[in-house]
Design a protein around this nucleic acid. Structure first.
Lengths: 234, 234
DNA sequence: GCACAAATTCTTGCATACAAGATTATTGAC
DNA sequence: GTCAATAATCTTGTATGCAAGAATTTGTGC
């Protein structure tokens, strides 16, 4: 978001751990050992513990008092719930954007849409993935509500590993691009109802999308190191 | 939410500081001094710093690297934005609740509504305030989406100081109660559109409500110790 | 061989010491 | 007297040590 010099070890480690968790380098329920991790990062336990706190607040790990810190994969049910909420948040952003679109935001969305088209025509999944994020982020900002935009960005980030797997589904990219185009046009046209409807459908997990998500979820979970070895008690 | 033994000093201090900030015991932009606070709490800087991290993640303070931790009042604009989002989140909870209301949730909402009626008939502002929270929390849970319920609860909490001031506005309580009754009936009746509409209007800052909010906001900000002495740079 | 209790070991929570960056005060040139 | 450069001070960031709670192992009785 901001420039944040990130000279602190705490920040560096938080980012590294976040990446590792999202990439599935730990198993679900695995305990993150302060001592061994601090050794492998070459720092003391202090910045590590601070990083744990930050990760806990974004839901990636769970700190249990005097027990330790455990990586927490959302359950399939959790993921479905999060996508439901994401769809509504996106629809809300889109509605606001359609209502009060500023010139600068329109240009940003247009640029991002063009980047999507370029990536889809190659096709380059990684590039599309990035362009997809930029397009959605542009909609968040176009909502004109910074608080909403931040919340949307946060949730988008949290769903990152699952969305990524969805995009790999055969034929999903052209479809996604077509939806983007319709969304963009509806926003520019100021058609709130259409934007809301299109975005909800674009994000929502329903029909075939649900099967894709389940497949993607299983891949993400079993792909993670060791996989669901230790299930959490709660 | 859970039982959380909270035997840790970090948790105790986080709660205490949260309360102090929300109650306006610090000025906007005031730096929270680690040394003097740790002395006044009778602990070392370590648990204090961990508490700061937690407060930062809920937006109550801002940690600037190597500068310190500063209490951050949301601006009036921020508050309006948050209420806008809150209204939509609540409407979403209500819609879900109307669609798939479970018996247990219906009873919980009914109990909370009755508590609102009791508090309004005395009238007891503090009791109404608590019952109001319980009623809304019951709707969140009735949504059947735990993630959504958690997010709603989080945002509700963040808006606590401003809502409290709104309720003090003359004649607001009977009006609020009438709205609650309509909301409850619409949910039980399964009328999604009506629930959505009623909840949005119940929460939203518009018309007279905006003037009330502005007045309440000014009271909250100037009521806080010293008030807007040091404005933040950004 | 099993169950339960005691002791040992391990891990986290907290305090404290030290290092490094930021801030303020001081000195000197003009 | 003003400005800039430098020194002194203060504050945060990190490392380390110690204490207390949790987990594990060992020992004992049956």
């Amino acid at each position: 978001m901001q420039d944040r010099s990130d000279s602190r070890r705490t920040d560096r480690i938080r980012e590294a751990l976040e990446e590792m968790i999202v990439e599935g380098r730990f198993a679900d329920g695995e305990r993150l050992d302060e001592v061994s991790l601090s050794k492998s990062f070459g720092v003391s336990r202090t910045p590590l513990r601070e990083a744990f706190q930050a990760l806990a607040s974004s839901g990636l790990v769970e700190i249990r008092a005097r027990r330790g810190t455990f990586v927490r994969f959302p359950s399939l049910e959790d993921v479905v719930e999060m996508f439901d909420v994401m769809a509504e948040i996106e629809a809300l952003c889109g509605r606001y954007a359609a209502r009060r679109l500023a010139q600068a935001d329109r240009l940003a969305m247009g640029d991002a849409l063009r980047a999507c088209e370029d990536a889809a025509s190659i096709p380059d999944v990684e590039a599309y993935y990035r362009a997809n994020h930029d397009f959605h982020a542009a909609i968040y900002r176009a909502s004109g509500n910074r608080f909403l935009a931040n919340e949307a960005e946060r949730l988008h980030r949290r769903l990152k590993p699952f969305r990524r797997l969805q995009l790999r589904v055969r034929g999903r990219i052209p479809e996604s691009l077509a939806e983007h185009t319709r969304i963009f046009e509806a926003i520019v046209g100021g058609d709130e109802a259409a934007v809301s409807c299109e975005l909800r459908r674009h994000i929502a997990v329903q029909g075939d999308g649900f099967a894709d998500l389940v497949a993607g979820y299983r891949a993400a979970v079993t792909g993670a190191k060791g996989a669901a070895r230790a299930r959490r008690p709660a």
